[in-house]
Design a protein around this nucleic acid. Structure first.
Lengths: 148, 148
DNA sequence: TGATACCTGAGTAAATCACTCAAGAACATC
DNA sequence: GATGTTCTTGAGTGATTTACTCAGGTATCA
């Protein structure tokens, strides 16, 4: 599997922040509770997101985390790469791949390079705002189903 | 990373078998030497490929392994799935994904499902014969470069 | 000054990866 | 039918990664 829980939790935390944008800092304990993420683990993910420039945080009472940019300007690709590192399906497609990597599976890399490019292009076209919108849509569906 | 050395070694071994198709069984020691794969590890990969129906093997002196089908009828997708299991980038996209998986990162799965489908389609369109052809092409290039 | 909240690095149990090793089973040849 | 060759299988192992926890520390507010 290409994605681990880091990407999962991290993106979910960002969706949470996006949903509460403009309401002041959101505390990690709130995010952890709402999104079912272990709080002590979330710490590290928020730190990564902060270092990557997606999140700003303030300490002390009534401190917390908030988005630096509007959610429409944040791509899923950017988030996942910040959280997971490279999304390359093969070692030899990574930017820093050495010569020995090219000896290896990279006999097939003309196919994989193409797939990787397509993947990144698609992920780059999805914004955090769209993810939030999709979640809202999903919630509405759930309510409708429930009310029938 | 989505692919491990299993997919790498396994496909390389299959390329080797395809190149020597029609010449009788190829011994694992030959494959291991030519493709730089640890012999004792290759054992297990060949067993997987045999169970998946790609390879037939005969024991005893002058035994070895050979392709069951012509290389043009073997897709890269089939090989990689036989070797690596599912190529799903997320757990929740796997066939047997349970309900708890859907709760998780699968909030983004409309994107990933699309990417996964594209990936499988592309891999299904590449045959082992094409991989062999590409390797031959690459060898010719190397010879030309060397002769300049 | 003390309570609150973020920040950081070290540590750890469980799983996966990339193998190795050893014992066995089938087959060809002499 | 004895011998040696080759595949077959399962168990085991060290290194790495994953998914966390914990124990401090730092900044901020009241």
């Amino acid at each position: 599997m290409l994605l681990s829980t880091k990407g999962d939790y991290g993106v979910r935390a960002m969706i949470d922040l996006a949903k509460h944008a403009g309401e002041g800092p959101v505390q990690r304990s709130e995010i952890a509770r709402r999104r079912q993420i272990p709080e002590s683990y979330l710490d590290h993910l928020l730190a990564q997101l902060r270092r990557a420039g997606f999140v700003r945080s303030t300490r002390g009472p009534s401190g917390g985390h908030e988005l630096v940019k509007p959610s429409s300007e944040i791509s899923l690709l950017g988030l996942l790469e910040a959280l997971e590192g490279s999304l390359a399906p093969l070692g030899c497609l990574e930017p820093a791949a050495g010569d020995d990597a090219a000896e290896s599976i990279c006999g097939q890399n003309w196919v994989w390079q193409e797939i990787y490019d397509q993947m990144r292009t698609r992920l780059a076209a999805v914004s955090l705002a769209e993810l939030v919108e999709h979640e809202r849509e999903h919630e509405r569906q759930a309510v409708i189903t429930y009310n029938i």
